[in-house]
Design a protein around this nucleic acid. Structure first.
Lengths: 227, 227
DNA sequence: CGAGACCTTGAGACAAGTCAACGCTGGTGG
DNA sequence: CCACCAGCGTTGACTTGTCTCAAGGTCTCG
């Protein structure tokens, strides 16, 4: 059993064979060993520097993880949507803050020194997959932040959200404000607003008066922009 | 050092089982199962999209891993120095290209589907530690790319290099060109050159005529800049 | 010593940032 | 039920940091 354990943790790292297997074994880990917690919009889940006792899985809502510079500049590392795991750390402390973007329900898992996680192969593999996915997203995001124009950033962001939210229709319900988008994409609020408006004028997207919904009108063109 | 990281990082994350089993096996992983390979400056180690058969550990020299956009824009994800592991993938393919920055010696490890890695606790932990460290570096780098000025980027970069190279004196031998620095920091060659010159004029660093060496004259001020 | 790669510098252009209104919208309380 | 308020989003005018383009300088290596 302990060998299986070791395998569960490491193999997905090194070969995709198992990772495929893990994703099909969609046992709901929610039913296991986690307690629930809810937050209202804007609620703090943990702060940068807090001891990393727990990690979290989003049930509903959305979460942002971010870092601050001493003068208040903020970089939002990622938005976490239902199914996503966040709050994993290699060290003792959280290297990010985390806040609920909208009203959010989470499952909280204690980071057990041994035992619990080891006993749950599904969760363990989910955790490793979450780390690897986080790494890949971070790498792609560096390309965006380092080398893409505002228009390309917005296009990339909208496409990736539409894939992750996948609600059938082409409409995306943005959970986050323009300010959050800006701090994720390395832009200012004004640039985000202007660029979104520009994409609408060019017919690539559509913006109901509400402004928190986006309909992708020309996904091919967006994809071309996103590179 | 890496063992320390592995202990701090992997174990709390996944389970202590592996660590107990392997913590007594203090064998140098270099002596196991890895073959050596050398590259001259500029040599390609693998290309984006290649099947990820192997991963690598730097013995000497320096390696850059990068992504390209269709129009040639490049983002250098990271520079890998002696002791660093790179080329690990969750999937079947390399998501980056890798090239030697200078003449480089590597150890090549086959990515065994199971078995071998599981048998070598030290290597396994090094691997997980490498992934976690890669994630942390990527996260810090997003802050840099998304929110820092050119001056702050250069300061951050020089400090981090000086820590990683740690050759006693305060002098850093830059293995990479200005162009590589630019593509890592999300700037242009010209901006890098100008900013480095500026830091020299302000007395924070010193640049021997060679231009590939940097002496940190005022690390405190640089640290303040880096945020 | 010469060629080429690399680095620096300058001048001008431009994308994105800043500052400042203004408008919408959704919620609250009179 | 409507009017107001506060927060969010948009837009405009202007500024600025970084990029672009174009020389020119400097090191290294054959």
């Amino acid at each position: 059993m302990q060998t299986a354990l070791a395998t569960a943790g490491l193999v997905p790292l090194l070969s995709a064979t198992l990772s495929n297997r893990a994703s099909t074994a969609r046992l709901d880990s929610e039913t296991r060993s986690g307690t629930r917690r809810t937050y209202e919009a804007g609620g703090e889940i943990f702060a940068e520097g807090d001891r990393a006792i727990c990690f979290y899985k989003v049930v509903s809502g959305a979460v942002r993880t971010y870092k601050l510079l001493s003068d208040g500049r903020r970089q939002i590392d990622a938005f976490h949507l239902p199914g996503d795991i966040f709050g994993l750390e290699a060290g003792e402390e959280h290297r990010f803050g985390a806040e609920a973007v909208t009203a959010t329900r989470l499952i909280v898992h204690r980071r057990e020194p041994r035992g619990l996680i080891g006993d749950d192969g599904v969760l363990a593999r989910e955790v490793v997959a979450a780390v690897m996915r986080g790494l890949e997203r971070a790498q792609d995001h560096m390309m965006l932040l380092g080398r893409k124009s505002a228009k390309e950033r917005i296009a990339t962001f909208l496409l990736s959200l539409s894939q992750r939210m996948a609600n059938g229709s082409g409409a995306i319900e943005l959970p986050m404000s323009r300010c959050d988008m800006a701090d994720h994409l390395g832009l200012t609020v004004e640039s985000v607003s202007r660029t979104v408006t520009l994409l609408e004028r060019e017919g690539l997207i559509e913006l109901p008066p509400n402004r928190r919904t986006v309909v992708l009108r020309n996904a091919a063109a967006l994809r071309h922009l996103a590179g």
